[in-house]
Design a protein around this nucleic acid. Structure first.
Lengths: 351, 351
DNA sequence: TTGAAAGCGCTACCAG
DNA sequence: CTGGTAGCGCTTTCAA
């Protein structure tokens, strides 16, 4: 089913059919009607590949995310997509699953589709990829990772500030033994978040001790990390999580072990996803404006106007502390050995 | 950057370049190397539109889901995608947001892309759409909705059975006043789930009363529905939710109002998403094997082998009851007026 | 083992 | 206002 068929049936040329389908207002309305009728009768759907090929440019944006399952990514995706749709753009998404190999193949795919722009909301990276991306003409916006270069914008959240707010708050509550739960992508010594945690802890509260564990990004990963943490002989009074999603997993494990939050241990998240309000106890966290991020990314993806000059810029976003129920005063004494007993006591009290 | 450029640089014809890029083993390896080198130096990426156009067939599958935010849909999508990747297929997803208008435009898009198959994991429907889809040659698999026709397979869950299991279990616990929380797509009188609830309640427990409320599919929608329900003068001893995602919202509202689960009211979900284990209390629900569904859908999307004959089939999936912490014995007496007081009592006891 | 060339379906420019 | 037609970049016979 192609243009020719429609043209034939309507008794016009393919050029005219094309005009009708593209709303070029030069067509006589009677002709237009005839074409539309023919197209309808044939149940015709234009071949978008042929169209893109002929046009030479696309109105499709590519979106790469590390983990769509994490509502944080989903929210950005949704905002981005809705901004795109509002301006007549389509989007295609790809989940990289934190695997840089998957990232590479997804990028290849999108370049192959000749997307008009590429949003990389990912934590993983690949050296060669940067090169390839750099050479390609397509506008790119990175979230969080990526060195700003020519025609590559970078949107990032000021984690340092967010971390400070959380640690500061916890410190004011008397916490002196804090643990950080991250996922594998925040594990490496390069990771800003990991470093930030350590530095913040160190500078903020000289007497404070820090510990780091990691799991996969997700409910189960958070739980697993918490399990490890509790099994170690580091007994934190507070657990700072790299994001809310994992924090919910942590919460679950603590509850499982009969540890009360925030009475026994305080827990914090990051992102302020919807779920943070709906879990129990509701999470104290730091708000990251996903909606705004999505829009900002979209705007910086367009080949638009004068924004072009400020391309290669870096956009910093300031997170805000949101206090809910998962944080409280640190317990007076925090000795070792208490772990198991506390756990048992809590459990029997609960059931 | 096109084939010609690569061909020129490698001193061969475009045909040869094409052969190399497509792994046709007829090319002399020295030639092959030269081509690869040229392609690499030029940072060449084949134009996939041109490719699809020339090939006339695609290895891309389209996936339509109503609400990617709901982990239920996400899980199916993930399973489907991973099955597809394993067999060398790409996928493109579209979120319809339960809006049939969005469904229609997404379908149009995918037909335009000439996808090799289309998976519709959606609750909404559109009359004309069915027609258009029917006329198109592309293989389609519907989940849950859609009348099985030629080359259209239908995968569906036996909700009736699932509902029976839940209602039966609740009944055995002594519940006689049950409410159903659905989302707008399960609201209409056509909806199987709504009907099923009513019928099951009626048949199962003649003395039982049922009530129905609805919100948007999601955490907030569940909470909203619960709020309405509690404000009404129907005082349920159990709340059955159309899915786990909304159930978590319901849980939140109950907790907010100081109503204990399952002591005061029992709550059940549906789907058995991961979150159902991680919320508090953990949800009693019915398991739907998303992994298996995703795979099944993929298999039925392929133009493969003899499966073709059994196309137009309907595949029924049997859900299993999963009992966790959100359900318990019904309270002895269930009079009205108790709502507010109970709420206050619960609240003070909690804090 | 390689090259020449005819499309794939659509757009857009040039005439009329 | 409409038709003819040259590509868009790649695949795929058909010959060599």
């Amino acid at each position: 089913m192609n243009l020719d068929a429609v043209a034939k049936r309507a008794g016009v040329s393919t050029a005219t059919v094309s005009r009708v389908l593209n709303d070029l207002k030069v067509v006589r309305s009677s002709t237009r009607a005839r074409v539309l009728k023919a197209a309808g009768e044939l149940n015709y759907h234009p071949n978008l590949h042929a169209r893109s090929l002929a046009r030479g440019k696309s109105r499709t944006l590519g979106i790469l995310v590390s983990n769509m399952e994490n509502p944080f990514f989903f929210d950005i995706y949704r905002a981005l997509e809705s901004a795109a749709h509002a301006r007549g753009y389509e989007v295609v998404v790809a989940n990289t699953d934190y695997r840089s190999e998957q990232l590479v193949s997804s990028v290849r795919l999108m370049i192959g589709w000749r997307v008009a722009g590429l949003a990389a909301i990912v934590s993983e990276m690949d050296a060669n990829l940067m090169q390839a991306l750099n050479d390609s003409r397509i506008p790119i916006v990175f979230y969080d990772v990526g060195t700003p270069r020519k025609n590559i914008t970078n949107v990032r959240v000021d984690y340092r500030k967010g971390m400070k707010k959380i640690a500061g708050y916890l410190h004011s509550l008397g916490h002196t033994r804090m643990a950080f739960v991250g996922h594998h992508s925040t594990l490496g010594p390069i990771s800003e978040r990991r470093k930030t945690f350590l530095e913040t802890i160190a500078r903020f509260t000289p007497g404070t001790e820090g510990q780091i564990v990691a799991g996969a990004d997700g409910l189960e990963g958070g739980r697993q990390a918490a399990r490890e943490l509790l099994a170690s002989n580091f007994h934190p009074t507070a657990i700072l999580c790299v994001n809310d999603f994992m924090a919910v997993g942590v919460l679950r494990e603590l509850r499982d072990q009969g540890i009360r939050v925030p009475n026994d241990i305080s827990v914090t998240g990051f992102d302020n996803i919807k779920l943070a309000e709906f879990c129990s106890p509701a999470l104290t966290t730091v708000h990251i404006p996903r909606e705004q991020i999505g829009q900002t990314i979209f705007e910086n993806l367009l080949p638009d106007s004068k924004r072009d000059q400020m391309s290669g810029r870096e956009i910093l976003i300031d997170p805000e502390l949101v206090v809910r129920e998962s944080t409280g005063l640190a317990r007076k004494t925090q000795n070792s050995a208490g772990g198991k007993e506390k756990s048992l006591a809590g459990r029997s009290a609960n059931s």
